[in-house]
Design a protein around this nucleic acid. Structure first.
Lengths: 324, 324
DNA sequence: CTGAAAGCGCTTACAG
DNA sequence: CTGAAAGCGCTTACAG
């Protein structure tokens, strides 16, 4: 059996109240008593039960993170930063991979509520489905609007989309096509598309956007793009994995990069920098996104409403590689 | 305030004992009472507090996962599979990124114990440092020996190393060099090296292994390798990220792949398959590794010792790409 | 400076 | 079929 606070008390020859006070460093305790208690804890290898503490305190220091899939380098990296920041602040992370499935998100959310998490960080495409507010749970969303009252943190998508499109134009591309997720998903990533379209129109060009589903293979859509627009010589993909698929398809068709086709991605994760360093991409400040999200979440948890912005967009950086 | 079981009881006009029985579907309860209780729970949006349940049951259904860094595609993917399997079995995952630092691992382990996790999955290079057994906690290790009594799950490293080396030989490479982590880390991955050395010796060739640190950049070591062995025409890297760095260095030096240099990696994650599809690599069955690890951990948790193997090595697959 | 008692939100013998 | 009581391992007023 695991030792409890009474076992410690008995060995130290004090009451469990005193042990608790030593544990929490609260109230006045004589140095001598403190030492006895510490020695007793050491002796029987005692660790306080956080379940019991949390039950009393109504505070678990537990944060839930719902992401689509940690296999994806962007989410894997985001998860790393969020967890690291949490750990440094004494919070623990309950990880949930929703695969973007509403049923899973609902189950996970209920699980998090039952486990009394202090707050939740959500990355989901399923907007408005979950009644996050009903439970008056502290929530922060990354890169996705959930409702009017839930703060969103992400990269400066408009600026990123603009940088990508302008680079392709500057490099002399004549037929620039954009690939993005479905426009129905009202995510801030739509701003990448908006920026692309704005810049194209400004230049008197016709914006053409192909839509890929976040759940399905991008191959057919990309193949279709090449079939329908053989003249394409510039592609701005809304994430690096799509960009990699574009490069693969281009190779398959004997279209040389960057001479015949230039490609720009989005995300710029560490994995991409190692595995596909030649890719030109718009790098998201994943560490800052994580930091801001947690900052905002903790403010909510501490009850400081109105002391944080509802939308936070952090600066992106153009990483120029050999694909442009 | 969140409603509790007494609030439900009051509304349903029964005792909290009865509500608990409905919740747990235990004992005999009339259909009518059940319905009243369910209606009451619905009405006030009641969710049971798992902290209180766990405190009583001495079972949290919480699993801790300690990995070096979820930014790494291999660990990100492993994390995804482990979490998914846990979720499907009613377990929840507490994620810990140790960065391979002993101090962090110790802190995380203590945190997990305080949170009363039912078991821990560990991926660490710090062998023998942590006294996992002392706490008589259920533990399973992935790809790393922790102690005699802690079961290890991983890929069939020897077979993988053999396949990689034999492929390079078959493809006609004359000077094959291997890159691996430090041999002091007594991980099963040393078997990749052992297999390489065995095959080389069998062929009357001289095995040459360069060691990279898991924490530092691989660039200098790879650069040194090319400097010291300009004749190298085959490299077996012990993971895909190292392989990617080899490819980059090779390009920098104008050494053409696969004509002048052939490269084989190890891991074969989804991320690599999308971002660097031309890489020939030994693919680990990450899903099976996750499944086996959880199987074994749950057996320990259920007290079925001796009903699981201490070492499990799962079959690898050669993925041939353009780098050989 | 220290302790006895009550309570956090549950569950399970025990009794009826 | 249902309820009162005790207890899981803590913490915090309250009293001394």
């Amino acid at each position: 059996m695991k030792p409890n606070i009474h076992d410690v008390a008995k060995i130290a020859g004090v009451s469990s109240t005193t042990v608790s006070r030593v544990l929490n460093n609260r109230g006045y305790i004589s140095e001598k008593t403190k030492e006895k208690v510490y020695k007793a804890m050491e002796e029987i290898n005692y660790f306080p039960n956080d379940l019991a503490r949390s039950l009393f305190n109504k505070r678990t220091n537990l944060i839930g993170l719902i992401i689509p899939n940690s296999s994806n380098p962007f989410y894997g990296e985001l998860t790393f930063h969020i967890e690291s920041i949490c750990a440094s602040l004494g919070y623990k992370l309950l990880l949930c991979n929703s695969l973007n499935r509403i049923d899973k998100e609902e189950k996970y959310l209920e699980m998090l509520i039952r486990n009394q998490v202090d707050g939740v960080v959500v990355v989901t495409y399923n907007r408005g489905i979950l009644n996050y507010e009903k439970q008056n749970l502290s929530v922060v969303a990354i890169d996705h609007y959930l409702s009017k009252n839930i703060p969103v943190v992400g990269s400066d998508n408009y600026s990123g989309g603009k940088k990508a499109t302008e680079l392709l134009i500057m490099k002399g591309c004549q037929y620039i096509v954009h690939i993005n997720g479905p426009i129905e998903l009202q995510t801030p990533a739509n701003l990448r598309r908006k920026a692309y379209e704005d810049v194209m129109k400004e230049q008197g060009r016709l914006p053409i956007t192909y839509e890929v589903s976040p759940l399905q293979s991008h191959k057919e859509v990309i193949s279709k793009l090449f079939d329908e627009h053989p003249e394409v010589d510039g592609i701005f993909a809304s994430d690096d994995l799509i960009a990699a698929s574009v490069i693969a398809e281009s190779k398959k068709r004997g279209k040389e990069i960057p001479t015949q086709l230039k490609v720009v991605g989005y995300d710029g994760t560490e994995a991409v920098q190692v595995l596909l360093p030649e890719l030109t991409t718009i790098q998201q400040p994943i560490d800052l996104i994580a930091k801001s999200a947690i900052d905002i979440l903790l403010k909510q948890i501490e009850g400081e409403f109105n002391n944080f912005p509802l939308e936070t967009y952090l600066p992106v950086k153009l990483l120029e590689g050999g694909t442009t």
